[in-house]
Amino acid sequence: MPDLGLNVLFEGRNFVRLLGGLWTALWIALAAMAASVVLGLPMGVLMTSRHRLVKLALRGYLEAIRVLPQLVLLFVFYFDLTYVTGVNLSPELAAFIVFTLWGTAEMGDLVRGAITAIPLHQYQSGYALGLKPSQVQAFVVLPQSVRRLLPLAVNLVTRMVKTTSLIVLIGVTEVLKVGQQIIDRNRFQYPDAALWVYATIFLLYFLACFPISRLAQTLERRFAV
């Protein structure tokens, strides 16, 4: 087995380093997702509010986040923020903030959708039993919304994990960056290292995202009404 490019992965601590990079990406995505859930739930509830101004403001926020590429947001928060305010964020923190802003907007929209998808008759059916509005929310609307929401939220996690591949551009040493380092370091010993390293990264992303994606499918089927 002479000169097989695959061996580059087992030079030194290369494979462990790749896993470490993946962990950095996952960690940022999951932390941002957790924050997005916490902030997105009230945002979604507020988006169903009757106050026109509240609705307009949240709608505007959602659309603004949606039309901007995540990469632009990352640059704005990492470079421009420092330039304007002098606050120097670590790249990880900037990534976390941007992903949370994005996730909150998406999550809020998902929550809004899940709440408005509950038919009016379900509310009335609850009221007809004598349930108070808060009880209808707690025992009828929220449980059903969560069931609709869960598969969609899990899908958002996979989107976040994938989008972490951008944060290499503001200097976070995540899995892609580690891969490039390994490729550059071994350019002469393993000329085809790129093939193997990127294939491994592909596999790592797959292993991270596929179970999450399957979980979403399972939840969707389980909660189908």
């Binding site: 379900q122 009828v140 449980p143 009404v225």
Partner: peptide
């Protein structure tokens, strides 16, 4: 107190409206 009134006046709807969860 509509909660109290609705306990005394039961209603059944055309589309059953059971709670699916």
């Amino acid at each position: 107190d509509w909660s109290e009134v609705r306990q005394r006046v039961g209603m059944v709807f055309q589309n059953y409206e059971l709670f699916p969860h």
